[in-house]
Design a binder for these strands. Structure first.
Lengths: 144, 144
DNA sequence: GAGGATGGTCAGGGAACCTTACTAGTTCTC
DNA sequence: GAGAACTAGTAAGGTTCCCTGACCATCCTC
């Protein structure tokens, strides 16, 4: 039920999806077999390791769902699980070799898309956009 | 694999998801039984009617997936299918009573969230954000 | 050191979405 | 204006995603 004036949520969505699509396409083209859901989770795995519970909370899904995706990523060499030295119950999910390769591949794609956007909007507007989004995160990301 | 500086895609995602979550919560609370996937499609149904193929293309899914969601929405009174007078093969998917109710319910929620964002960012920055996003749509939404 | 909170797994099921294959209607082309 | 090529939509069947409910192991608190 599209309104004459686009709602801000949808306006945010178009570029978000465009970026996601481009990155995933690049990964696929380079021979990575990662699904969209896997990639979304993988992108949240911190270099120094993340807990499953944290990943699930950030992605707003259940621990079980996140755990299943981590299983898949682990089986394909994208992440590894190591015991958390600080908590015997927990395990840290860390990027593994394939995951680091994917990250190294994704980074320039992200940069390229951002460069395209900058070319379209101009340096100043793009900077302002990023600044506004960064501030908006304070009230829209409970994990900020 | 979170980078020190947040990539713009993720920055777009946080407020997008926040908006979506708020709207869906309001619908659910008001007794609407709509899933996230259904809501995402419903929001794209034009008042004057949309073709299934168009909806699928906009939502970037197959006709079959979109068709299944429309079936569900139709069964619950959110949309109706009418023959397209201009093309005997096609049918127009139009909002039905329940769908219009949902739209009327969603609009003020969207407005409220946007008002919160404006309060946080300031009128000027919010306007600039919307302007930048609108221009960005030109290069990120093939349907713009 | 008992009770509650937290990190994670197991089992089962439903929703979302895909591929392949098909019918019906429209448009193009000669 | 007749056949070819295309477009709108449906049918069938499978995979992926993600949920609920139940459970165990390890903290943390008093």
């Amino acid at each position: 039920m599209t309104e004459p004036a686009q709602n801000t949520g949808l306006l945010l969505f178009y570029p978000y999806r465009a970026m996601e699509t481009r990155v995933l396409a690049a990964l696929t083209e380079a021979g990575h077999e990662v699904t969209l859901a896997q990639a979304r989770l993988l992108q949240r795995v911190a270099r120094e390791g993340s807990r499953l519970t944290d990943l699930a909370a950030q992605a707003q899904m259940t621990k079980q769902s996140a755990g299943s995706l981590v299983d898949q990523l682990e089986a394909r060499g994208y992440v590894e699980r190591v015991p958390d030295p600080r908590d015997g119950r927990a395990r840290l999910i860390r990027p593994a070799r394939r995951g680091l390769e994917a990250a190294d591949l994704a980074a320039p794609v992200v940069a390229a898309v951002e460069a395209e956007w900058t070319a379209h909007l101009g340096e100043e507007t793009m900077a302002a956009l990023r600044a506004a989004l960064t501030r908006l995160r304070e009230v829209t990301d409970p994990w900020a």
